[in-house]
Amino acid sequence: MKTLKGPSLHLAQFSDVAPPFNSLPAIAAWAADRGFKALQIPAWDERLFDVSLAAHSQDYCEEVSGTLAEHGLVISELTTHLFGQLVAVHPAYDRLCDGFAPPALQGNAAAKTEWALERLRLSAKASRRLGLTDMGTFSGSFAWPYLFPFPQRPAGLIDSAFDELAKRWLPILNACDEEGVNLCYEIHPGEDLHDGVTFEMFLQRVDNHPRCRILFDPSHFVLQQLDYLDYLDIYRDFIRMFHVKDAEFNPTGRQGLYGGYQGWADRAGRFRSVGDGQVDFKGIFSKLALHDYAGWATLEWECCLKDQDDGARQGVAFINEHIIRVTDKVFDDFAGAAVDQAQLDAMLGLARPSLQGRA
């Protein structure tokens, strides 16, 4: 068993135009003051990080690492979710994704995808220069509008979507392999990889690629009513990243799973600050310790009620309280005694009188 690392903080929900959230030195000082040990950096946020420069300059990478080290921090991982989202975009969502790309590319779906694929390659190179082994992302989606099968889905629609998804991602997985970096897909509603079955469909199509891995976030499974503890047992060998994010599902006589037309505060399923929702984190941290997960526990703050600074401060304490420092002892050793093989045989009734000398 291994003791996982933490707490780390995913910066995507904290980055802002106002200080101290608009530069890496300032946000590092803020995070260290609240007790974080690492930062998970969104590679798309140019206020904090220049992924192109990092891919080509070791000096810049050492400068970034040094900036964090001044505050007792390290980089846990880079994330590339907005790049990944642009790899596969259904036309219904194309305009909604325009803000993920440079203004000159907006409205040009093919150009946005090509730009995103190159950014993913740069992110893998940057990860290697920074000494990182795992990188988070989204899969994007062609088929999400067809999740509910009415009107009836035509035969072959989902297979075609996953075939194209794998075709686009396979070169990126190969590029990650060249850099020694695992690509960890966050299994997430809105993505074609949104549960275990869809991950397996994709994994098969990329020929069980050794860099195809999982970013585990239990909050999305609460909203899907999926057994996330069983999921940890099934996919233990694939999970390389972990977002500590809480959620709750409170169906009523008026709404349930498809209450998505309401604002976040009014949905049956909604995200909450850690400890305020329904996720069984004691069970999760126990499973991760048992399964030798050696990565980071990274707070991802998303809450429809609580102030983000309170969520960050409380999240640090929550993660520290839940990390299991694994034991190197067996608790009942005090009652044990040395036993040789002859005694073991006797305990099992296997001892036999010697037949030597008998006629």
Rank of each mutant, 00 (worst) to 15 (best):
V89K: 04
D340L: 03
W115I: 02
R205C: 08
F271G: 02
G6T: 08
G190V: 11
Q204R: 11
R358G: 08
A161M: 00
F138T: 13
H243Y: 08
P171A: 07
Q106W: 01
A161C: 14
L229E: 13
I234V: 13
M241Y: 04
H243P: 02
Q343W: 00
D246I: 06
K2Q: 15
G131C: 05
V181K: 03
L170D: 06
T137Y: 06
K167W: 04
D195G: 10
L39V: 01
S65A: 15
A111Q: 09
L96S: 15
K125A: 15
S273R: 03
S354L: 13
A265T: 11
G6I: 01
S8E: 01
E114S: 14
A351I: 08
G107C: 02
G269S: 10
L223G: 08
D163G: 02
G99D: 14
D266W: 00
K245L: 07
F202V: 09
H194N: 12
L355N: 15
Q13M: 14
C97D: 07
Y228A: 14
L355S: 15
R213W: 03
K5M: 13
L122I: 02
R121Q: 12
E178G: 06
F334K: 06
P102V: 05
A92Y: 04
P189D: 11
G180P: 02
R47V: 01
L86Y: 00
A143H: 05
A101R: 03
H56N: 02
E77Y: 05
M135N: 10
G269F: 04
L73C: 04
A92R: 08
A69H: 10
V197I: 14
T298N: 06
F249S: 10
L350F: 06
P20I: 10
H220W: 10
H322N: 15
G315C: 06
S160V: 00
A12H: 06
